[in-house]
């Protein structure tokens, strides 16, 4: 609880001075949110049309890279091939269905790139498998494309309207 602080006189006289509340650790909140959510909304665009899809995702420990997969014959794959600038939306609304102020959300912006082989490809598959073991068959399919997302920044929303930007 902050102390009583009526209009301060000159800051040097007694009760003045600024109170700073402890800064919430944005990175920690984001990490926590990602760890507790398995799915997110992938936002793509093409033909002047935004498009959203629910996907399963995995992410690297430094929060700089996301991985997801999509079948080749999908609208989202086509859109990704036309424009690689994407956004991901992850939130905790399922944990707080009756209190908007407790819901945390992040919008991640970044650039998607398809991976077909190599070290990053192996890393992406491994991370997705460990997070979503039930998707193993889907991940290994020839008609599935693996994408990595290079994160540009996070927009973290708390208490309904408080927004911070974090660059990993």
């Amino acid at each position: 609880m902050n102390s009583i602080d009526e209009p301060i006189f000159g800051p040097e006289f007694g009760h003045g001075g600024f109170e700073t509340s402890e800064e919430p650790d944005v990175e920690h909140s984001i990490r926590d949110l990602l760890a507790h959510q398995s799915f997110c909304v992938l936002c793509t665009q093409g033909q002047s049309q935004p498009y959203g899809s629910l996907i399963a995702f995995a992410f690297t420990d430094n929060l700089k890279t996301f991985f997801f997969t999509t079948p080749l014959a999908t609208r989202k794959f086509k859109l990704l091939s036309e424009c690689n600038r994407i956004a991901l939306v992850i939130d905790s609304r399922c944990q707080h269905p009756d209190d908007m102020t407790k819901v945390g959300a992040v919008t991640v912006t970044g650039k998607a790139e398809r991976l077909q082989s190599g070290e990053e490809f192996e890393q992406g598959i491994a991370l997705l498998k460990s997070r979503h073991p039930y998707l193993a068959h889907f991940l290994e399919s020839d008609s599935t494309a693996l994408f990595k997302v290079d994160v540009v920044r996070y927009f973290h929303v708390t208490r309904f309207q408080e927004v911070s930007q974090w660059i990993p």
């Binding site: 944005v26 990175e27 927009f155 929303v157 208490r159 309904f160 309207q161 408080e162 927004v163 911070s164 930007q165 974090w166 660059i167 990993p168």
Partner: peptide, 10 residues
């Protein structure tokens, strides 16, 4: 702050 920036304050 280098990496964190407020975009909307309440």
């Amino acid at each position: 702050r280098k990496s964190v920036k407020s975009r909307q304050l309440i």
